[in-house]
Amino acid sequence: MGLSEELVLPISRPSKGASGRTGVWRVFKPVIDLQKCVKCWQCWLLCPEETILADDVPKVDYDYCKGCGVCAKVCPTKAITMVEERE
């Protein structure tokens, strides 16, 4: 049975950025110094936002990173610094 136009359901579909480009929320942005990075991936593990990309080396997904700073805090080699965003 085909469903009619008149059936409007309260359901949503998964999507990245469902609340928009949350990167614009950011006040400080994490910058990774790859010289210091030992690839322990603590930043990836403990990022609350799934915005550390697990590439060869960790990279920040600035489109969605909200700049909470957890990654900088948990980095054992202090390879991540929080730098103020400037327009």
Binding site: P14, S15, K16, G17, A18, S19, G20, R21, T22, W25, L45, L46, C47, P48, E49, E50, T51, D61, D63, Y64, C65, K66, G67, C68, G69, V70
Partner: peptide, 19 residues
């Protein structure tokens, strides 16, 4: 968990759910 949610920065819920 997909990035770009409405969680506050540093949310313990999104972090634990993600993992």
């Amino acid at each position: 968990y997909l990035p770009g949610s409405a969680a506050c920065p540093g949310c313990g819920l999104s972090l634990s759910f993600r993992i």
